[in-house]
Amino acid sequence: MNTFPDASAGANAALTIAVAINPRAAFGGNRRNSPGQTGDMVVGRLRDAGHNVTLLRRRDYQSLRHAVDAELTAGAQALVVVGGDGMVHLGVNALAGTDVPLGIIPAGTGNDAARGLGLDPRDPAAAVERFLGACKGTPRTVDLGRIERTGQPPVWFMCALSAGFDALVNERANGWHHPRGTLRYNLAILRELLFLKPLRYTLTVDGVPRALPATLISISNGTSIGGGMKITPDAKYDDGLLDLFVVSPVSRLTFLRIYPLVFSGRHTTHPVVGIERVQEVVIDSPGVVAYADGERMGALPATVKVDPGALQLWV
């Protein structure tokens, strides 16, 4: 069982903290400001602040998740993840429904969860200071999205489930080893544009069935995906709702006109864009593979629900 120091103990109360580093950076990550180097900085700063810190470095996400679970079972009072949205996804699924807070130090490619929580992806040191200040007080409570698929355990997400053009882009980009970073994602967008066509969906939205063609459907808990694309700029992490984002069938030219607007959130008034607040969506489209927080979930159908207040954060 995790027990927390009494808030009256003041700023010097020591916590037992597990710090997990993106496995892709845990070995051989020597570039400046890599997650590996950032992780060393985070551990040093937390220890300097008087906390008891365990650094978790593993060669793959499965091994890292096992290590995180072991630390939580042993009594870790907080988990800090160092990396991008994939690491946030790992932390969210380790902590959903518990009273153990999550800290986020952005050091990845997308960093959409961090950005939506007001953290600057360019300044991981500031994120550490935010964590150190927050852990002296009451954790912030936020909602999560929960994905249910037949025969599979539930999976939680922080940002969004994608099941359309953006999921096809993820599938394409993840199949390439080069180039790295956002360039690979942008090239995958261009590749998928060559074959742009609407997909057929069947949905049940808060109990009401509908069938429609669409270019893209996402179900968002946060504001952005894909490294800053503000698909649902007015989404809230604590409103007890998800945002259903639908782009109706469009030509390549129209898509290219809308695409730059997504980064500023100015796309929402375009007639092909629809956003509505929902609590539950059952979604299916033959052959479509869903992604959540940039992580591959598998083929539809899936039931997506809001899980209010499912996560505690120190950010």
Results as ranks from 00 to 15, higher is better:
residue 6 D to P: 03
residue 9 A to N: 04
residue 11 A to F: 09
residue 12 N to F: 04
residue 16 T to P: 07
residue 21 I to A: 02
residue 33 N to V: 12
residue 35 P to T: 01
residue 37 Q to G: 00
residue 47 R to P: 03
residue 51 H to T: 07
residue 52 N to T: 11
residue 52 N to F: 00
residue 61 Y to P: 07
residue 71 E to A: 14
residue 71 E to T: 05
residue 84 G to M: 01
residue 85 D to H: 10
residue 90 L to R: 03
residue 92 V to S: 07
residue 93 N to I: 01
residue 94 A to E: 04
residue 96 A to V: 04
residue 100 V to F: 07
residue 103 G to N: 12
residue 115 R to Y: 06
residue 115 R to Q: 12
residue 133 G to N: 13
residue 144 L to G: 10
residue 144 L to E: 10
residue 154 P to H: 12
residue 155 V to S: 01
residue 156 W to V: 04
residue 157 F to Y: 10
residue 163 A to H: 03
residue 171 E to F: 08
residue 171 E to K: 13
residue 172 R to W: 08
residue 172 R to E: 14
residue 173 A to C: 02
residue 175 G to M: 09
residue 181 G to A: 13
residue 181 G to F: 05
residue 185 Y to N: 02
residue 187 L to V: 02
residue 188 A to E: 05
residue 190 L to S: 10
residue 191 R to L: 07
residue 195 F to E: 00
residue 195 F to H: 14
residue 196 L to F: 06
residue 198 P to H: 13
residue 201 Y to H: 11
residue 202 T to N: 08
residue 202 T to G: 09
residue 202 T to R: 15
residue 202 T to I: 11
residue 208 V to H: 08
residue 217 I to P: 02
residue 218 S to F: 01
residue 220 S to Y: 00
residue 221 N to F: 06
residue 229 M to F: 11
residue 230 K to S: 07
residue 233 P to A: 04
residue 233 P to H: 12
residue 233 P to L: 08
residue 234 D to A: 13
residue 236 K to I: 02
residue 243 D to W: 08
residue 244 L to R: 04
residue 249 P to W: 14
residue 254 T to Q: 15
residue 256 L to V: 00
residue 259 Y to T: 00
residue 261 L to P: 06
residue 264 S to H: 11
residue 265 G to V: 12
residue 268 T to Y: 01
residue 272 V to Q: 01
residue 275 I to S: 01
residue 277 R to G: 06
residue 278 V to P: 07
residue 279 Q to Y: 01
residue 279 Q to D: 08
residue 286 P to G: 09
residue 287 G to Y: 08
residue 288 V to Y: 04
residue 289 V to W: 07
residue 290 A to W: 01
residue 296 R to Q: 15
residue 300 L to Q: 09
residue 302 A to R: 10
residue 307 D to S: 15
residue 307 D to Q: 09
residue 311 L to F: 02
residue 312 Q to R: 15
residue 313 L to W: 02
